[in-house]
């Protein structure tokens, strides 16, 4: 363990750990849109700016990509950082005018409106909320191993979607993308036995039915994927049941066990 100093407060950290993680653990608020602990730091949203006052690279840098080192000292809220962040927020307000998360942050920074031209596309699959933080692309590729979506184009024409805007054959419908999205831009919908990833070119994924009550409760390819990840002796039972039936089943087993009765599956 080593010691770093954030805003004058000493914090313990793992050597090499992302400074953003250290700060979060300490309850120090640094806005960040593109960081997720399970993924490698990406350094794209530039919101997590901090100023290194003592350390290897002094000056303004991003906290997510800053590795904790003994004696590192940073400030997270200098007037320069705040004004840079405010300008970045204005750019985000223009880029993703429908995002409530961005508007909420703007409010906290006392920004009423952006000075920049707002981009609104009526048919935007990402609901004019995407800020291109790349979390969805990375979680899908790096964690889920599916790689169903990617960047299309470059510069400010960059979009995120499935290749050629066609329904994806590899999307498992797991929804990890929607869960990590900091601006709730990704939409999907479950209707009876099908999940439709509305943001991803309407990709359709069949839903798996509970073997007990018959309710369609989870994307089938994802159930298969999860099954493969489990130890062989666990691969059969639990995932056949929807969450409701599963808890009932567990309760039943618990009661039976407590009475000393033999338990069957």
């Amino acid at each position: 363990m080593i010691r770093v100093v954030i805003n004058g407060k000493a914090c313990t950290a793992e050597k090499g750990e992302s400074l953003l993680s250290v700060a979060r653990r300490k309850g120090i608020d640094i806005p960040a849109f593109c960081y997720e602990e399970t993924l490698a730091p990406y350094g794209a949203c530039r919101m997590c700016l901090v100023e290194v006052v003592k350390g290897a690279q002094e000056g303004i840098t991003t906290a997510c990509t800053l590795a904790a080192a003994e004696g590192l000292e940073v400030l997270t809220q200098t007037s320069e950082i705040v004004s840079l962040r405010r300008a970045l927020i204005e750019l985000y307000l223009a880029q993703a005018p429908r995002s409530e998360a961005i508007r909420a942050l703007a409010q906290r920074y006392g920004i009423q409106k952006t000075r920049f031209a707002r981009k609104v596309r009526p048919d935007d699959p990402l609901q004019n909320r995407c800020i291109l933080c790349g979390l969805c692309v990375r979680i899908c590729h790096d964690v889920m191993g599916a790689g169903a979506i990617n960047y299309i184009g470059r510069g400010h024409f960059t979009e995120i979607n499935t290749p050629f805007y066609e329904e994806s054959a590899v999307c498992m419908g797991c929804g990890a993308c929607a869960r990590v999205c900091p601006t709730q831009a990704i939409a999907f919908e479950d209707i009876v036995q099908t999940r439709t990833m509305k943001s991803w070119s309407g990709t359709r994924v069949p839903l798996h039915a509970c073997s007990k009550c018959g309710r369609h409760f989870a994307p089938a390819p994802f159930v298969n994927y999860a099954r493969q990840k489990l130890a062989p002796d666990l691969q059969q039972t639990p995932l056949r049941l929807c969450p409701d039936c599963r808890s009932r089943e567990i309760a039943r087993k618990a009661v039976l066990l407590s009475t000393g009765a033999a338990v069957a599956d």
Binding site: G43, A44, C45, R46, A94, Q95, R154, G155
Partner: peptide, 16 residues
């Protein structure tokens, strides 16, 4: 035109 589009200041800032 050549901005890769990864980070917001370059991507959005240059556009404006």
């Amino acid at each position: 035109e050549e901005s890769c589009g990864k980070c917001v200041p370059c991507r959005e800032g240059l556009k404006h």
